[in-house]
Amino acid sequence: MSSSTTSGQGQGQGDDAPDLVCVADCVHGMVDALSCVRWNKHQGAVVELSEHGIVVTVEESGCLQAKVYLKTELFAEYDYGAEGRPRFGLSLGLLVDCLNMFTVPGFASPVEIRYPGPDMQLLLRSVGSPDACIHAEIRTRIPDTVAWDYHFEHAGNTPVTFTVKSAILKESIDDLEWPGSSIQIHFHPDPPSVIFKGEGHGDLEIEFSYYANTDLLIAFQCDQELSYRYKYKFLRATTSNVPSSVLKENRGSKVTIGRGGMLKIQHLVSVARLGTQSYHNFAGGAQQPSRIAFIEFFVKPEEDD
């Protein structure tokens, strides 16, 4: 990739081209996607840049991990000049709050994202209007080098997975708050069904039966009986902040169980605003279909005693 063509706020950077200069024509979707993985106020995130896009990862207690994939197609411009894959840590809350600044009605203009700044900051600024400008500098830190063990492999030859309307998944998990504590997810190949079972202050069972209602499970795949238990608070984090746009579109969230019971939940967030004129697309093609941010949650199962 060539070095940046839009010079920015970089002072004293010498001739070094920044690792990344990209422009998002609207950051509403990005705010939605990142808010989805913001389950507490003071949460650190690790950002990884590459020629394919930006990946934001958050982690908690060695049991829960979430990743937001912002692919290059989401950006109007994406100029990547680094070798290797630069990684840095920052506060997720601050990143969301700063991006939110650019969603003020009347200010909505393309936002340039640049890394690193003169002091290794992440720099954001609006580039649409010459008479009103918003700018932000977020201090970054060197990320922890501890490797997170969320390696995901399918359990058998065929993946064990189902896809359910996002709103239903969220509602079901919200309902399981009452028994709380530990939730068992049970896959049943014949008749095809998935059961969420909570045992705590009381028992609550929610069954998704593939044949009962064709609208309920959009897809179901399972060739063996499987059952794992997960801590409710981690399960809840996977849907508690799903943006209302995802629930409204209700595309479907995909739930997969991998080897050792690793649970993967995927959501899709539309990044393009409906009804807004798109800027131009980095990929150059039709904009709308590719403008999706992917969100993945990984939850480790509870250890059996």
């Binding site: 010079s7 920015g8 601050l94 700063c98 009103a132 918003i134 700018h135 500098e137 977020i138 201090r139």
Partner: peptide, 26 residues
């Protein structure tokens, strides 16, 4: 941890005014 600012330029002025110096917009 963070600096966030918002700038409005070329607003209508009442009172003392000066010509903006030519500064690199970057």
């Amino acid at each position: 941890l963070v600096t966030v600012g918002s700038e409005f330029k070329r607003l209508r002025i009442l009172g003392a005014r000066a010509n903006a110096p030519v500064v690199d917009q970057n």
